[in-house]
């Protein structure tokens, strides 16, 4: 890995990392406080509105209609659309900078003519991205812990289970990052790369949603990344989701490797 390129990457992604991390910390703290505290009111609403039940189940990745217990309310801060959107946004913003972003802003002529291999460029960028990803995760954990500690609830999530959920979310973050690297490697325009990656993530989200009541969607739900992220099951059963995490990590590695292969073989033309 190249220290110069890592320094450049740090400067370029620190603002978005701190911004996303800060927002996630705040949102997570609010959700972790509000949802368990006002569980009774929310449960009543959920029982009355069928659409909300389906939506809740889709977000949690399991049929939760029969069990809107404390775990479901502790799990919801981990799957809230705002949380997922911010986690995705961080991955999309950081991982489409190169090569699509560099080509689009014309700086590729300078960056890619430095005396390093393209693999080394990608490795250096990825090392910084991993550190940024861990920073974001740490800020989410901080928000969840602070919010949860003030929540007025009969039960609180076990620390170990919360850490497992965080590990699962981190794997999801890495997989979204891998997808973004690949789409970016195939593109000359960062906007296009972000749009394509976002549409794919949205498709995964919709698939998860539709799978709650459509048999066909249920059968192909395994194709979506969100199928491998189930905080409710972890918080309820305390089981480490090895398989889900392995699949997400494998997807991240495969997508990243494919991105590297495409990037090292492609032409770079800024005009």
């Amino acid at each position: 890995m190249n220290r110069g390129l890592m320094l450049k990457a740090v400067v370029e992604i620190r603002t978005s990392t701190l911004l996303c991390g800060g927002l996630l910390c705040g949102v997570e703290a609010i959700l972790a406080y509000v949802l368990p505290t006002f569980q009774a009111q929310f449960s009543e609403n959920l029982r009355q509105i069928r659409f909300l039940q389906t939506f809740f189940s889709a977000m949690l990745g399991v049929d939760a209609s029969e069990q809107f217990g404390p775990e479901a309310f502790m799990a919801f801060p981990w799957v809230h659309p705002v949380v997922l959107a911010l986690v995705w946004a961080h991955a999309l913003v950081c991982c489409t900078r190169l090569p699509a972003g560099e080509i689009e802003q014309g700086t590729a002529d300078v960056t890619f003519t430095l005396p390093v291999t393209r693999w080394e460029i990608l490795r250096s960028e990825t090392a910084v991205w991993l550190a940024a990803s861990l920073t974001v995760m740490a800020m989410i954990l901080l928000g969840n812990t602070v919010g949860g500690s003030y929540a007025v609830a009969a039960e609180h999530a076990e620390g170990a289970r919360t850490l497992i959920v965080l590990a699962n979310l981190w794997c999801l973050h890495l997989a979204v990052g891998g997808l973004s690297w690949l789409v970016s490697a195939l593109s000359n325009r960062r906007g296009v790369a972000i749009t394509v990656a976002f549409v794919l993530l949205l498709a995964s989200f919709l698939l998860n949603y539709l799978a709650q009541f459509w048999e066909f969607a249920k059968r192909i739900a395994f194709l979506g990344l969100l199928d491998y992220y189930r905080p409710l099951v972890i918080l309820r059963d305390g089981i480490m989701p090895w398989r889900d995490m392995a699949i997400l990590l494998m997807a991240a590695i495969l997508l990243w490797t494919a991105a590297g292969v495409v990037f090292t073989r492609r032409d770079v033309c800024t005009t």
Binding site: N2, R3, G4, L5, L7, K8, V11, E12, Q105, G106, T107, D109, V110, T113, L114, P115, V116, T270, T271
Partner: peptide
């Protein structure tokens, strides 16, 4: 390059420091 574009956030000193670490 002919149509030179540099990273907007850099100043000359930063650019030289990064370049010297890269090289």
């Amino acid at each position: 390059p002919g149509d030179l574009r540099l990273h907007a956030w850099m100043d000359g000193n930063q650019a030289l420091r990064i370049w010297e670490k890269v090289r």
